[in-house]
């Protein structure tokens, strides 16, 4: 019976949960950033992480592709546990795309080179194949005519869309968005969100840290609310925005809405 149950759990994890965080703890020096985080993301699910500044949202998703190291607990991505094993880390990073608040495009490369670089050196695609893929993706994010320019010549919104295309070019199973619109002018936020919505509709598994409540309400399958390093509440957008249970959540929502 117990065997069966275990098997069932394992089965469930491998079937549904593409990201699984179990009792995750992280410290920056003595500072306890993430406290006993338990969460999961299912395949093709869009999870939005919200919370006040300093609540550990960014740290959490940065742990998911090992940009930050966790000290306790487990992170299991697509059946592989993140550990110090370099092979595991690079295998996981190949499957996870990430988009940063500050875009982090490579300023010394053109847009096209930005999108083809990792394809060629990580996925080992030929130049022609990589460029074809890159041009397709630039088309998809709506900036096909900027391929020859350098990032410095683009607007913030265009840069962020290039960053999305760059991450997508690796054919990731999961996309992580770390406050993708926070550094953008209000006029440009929409063009980035549109791309993200389109991506969500296409069935991409996404974990999004954002302050865009409209986006969360419209696109998210589930919302995770974090405060001071712990998960306060997890729920569907309807539950979350209309009938939050926890006092902290209510306070937070009352301040931003």
């Amino acid at each position: 019976m117990a065997e069966q149950e275990k098997e069932k759990i394992a089965h469930e994890i491998s079937e549904d949960d593409i990201i699984e965080c179990i009792e995750l703890n992280k410290w920056f020096g003595d500072f306890h950033v993430l406290k006993d985080i338990n969460m999961n993301v299912k395949e093709r699910e869009v999870v939005v992480v919200i919370g006040p500044s300093g609540s550990g949202k960014s740290t959490l998703i940065r742990c998911m592709n090992r940009l930050e190291e966790h000290q306790e607990g487990q992170i299991i991505i697509d059946g592989i546990e993140l550990s110090n094993d370099i092979g595991n880390i690079s295998a996981i990073r190949r499957e996870i795309g990430m988009v940063f608040q500050q875009f982090n495009l490579f300023p010394h490369l053109t847009v096209l080179q930005n999108v083809t670089l990792a394809q060629r050196y990580v996925r080992r695609r030929s130049r022609a194949e990589a460029e074809e893929k890159a041009l397709g993706l630039l088309e998809r994010v709506g900036i096909p005519d900027q391929a020859g320019k350098y990032p410095g010549q683009l607007s913030g919104g265009q840069q962020q869309r290039v960053a999305i295309a760059r991450a997508l070019a690796m054919d990731p199973k999961i996309m992580l968005f770390d406050e993708p619109t926070s550094a953008l002018d209000p006029e440009m936020i929409k063009e980035v969100l549109d791309v993200m919505k389109e991506l969500a509709r296409s069935g991409m598994t996404m974990v999004v840290v954002t302050h865009e409540m409209g986006f969360a309400r419209e696109v998210a399958d589930r919302v995770i609310f974090m405060d001071s390093g712990r998960v306060v509440e997890i729920g569907t957008p309807e539950h979350f925005f209309e009938a939050p249970s926890h006092e902290r959540t209510k306070l937070f929502l009352s301040q931003i809405l």
Binding site: N65, L67, R93, N104, F106, H108, Y121, V122, R166, M170
Partner: peptide, 29 residues
């Protein structure tokens, strides 16, 4: 910037590629 290295790692580039393709070209320039 540190973000450049993070972006390279997030794309799956290894340490050597990150150094030669991302860091050194920018540092030298």
């Amino acid at each position: 910037p540190k973000g450049q290295i993070e972006a390279a790692y997030a794309l799956g580039l290894n340490g050597f590629s990150t150094t030669t393709l991302i860091i050194l070209p920018q540092a030298l320039r």
